[in-house]
Design a binder for these strands. Sequence first.
RNA 1: GCCCAUGUCGCUGUCUG
Length: 321
Amino acid sequence: VVSWTALLTAYAQNGHFTEAKSLFLEMPERNTVSCNAMLAAYAANGDMASSRALFNDMHGERDAVTWSTMITGYARNGDVREARKIFDAQPKCQCDVTAWNAMISGYGLCGDVDAATSLFAEMTTRDAVTWNSMLAAYAQNGHILAAKALFDSMPYKSLVSWTSLLVAYAESGHIDEARLMFDAMPRRDVVARNAMLSAYSQAGYIADARQLFDDMPVRSTVTWNAMIAGYGQNGLGGDAILLFQQMDVEGIPTDDITFVSVLDVCGSVAELQLGEIVHREVEAIGIEIGVTLGNALVTMYGRCGVLDLARQLFDGMPERD
RNA sequence: GCCCAUGUCGCUGUCUG
């Protein structure tokens, strides 16, 4: 069961929902852990109805993970009310911090900062994630002052806390504050550096962004994506394209967002030829063209004036939003 | 008794703009 479940999760986390599902159905044996994994897989695929059906079947087989998986599933699929119902339906003796944390995050996600705050206040046992979840709820909903106040009162600050606040400053246009946070951080990882890189480019400080990029000891796909998007957003489409090509040369793994960013640049500077090359590359690599990539391709062709191709792609999309 | 599978917090993107 352990290896079947591990495989199921691997499929689900790489977007192979169909394979995950048939694996689940073919498993010789299922337990709470494998059912929990499938609950999460359904939720990641937006299928809360199936998730709920399985949850209902799990009656005596539910554990703490089951409950928090359902809470997160509903929250991420835009149904906080149902998430809260699940939260309230938990056996009361089950004081699982993770479920509380998930519920706070759910409220943060849907913008209900007040509900997050009161839940946070009710908690008697908080862990590091609890504090960070509350911080994120403030930070991601524009409550910068509240975020800062909470940050200052936090018993333990992790990289997550620092980065959350840094991003909140950057996105509200307080680049100097963001930079102060970055400089004051006790240590920095690749996520923190990526956040600062984006902060620079959002503020138009593209040279600082590039400097940071060059100085980074470790770069992730997100780093490259952020730099490419930064060039694009600052009107430096040529540099964006160069960087994309360098990614290829250096064998850096790409993802959907890489292609979306590059296609966006192609569209904005009407680089039809490169857009077509990227399109072919996407197909060559065999990435599935889902809504995200499909939208980017349609937009790119549209901006380049190739409306018939844009329309053809649109018609061929298996899913649209 | 211990180890291996599942859940909660921070970074990048397209349309609407």
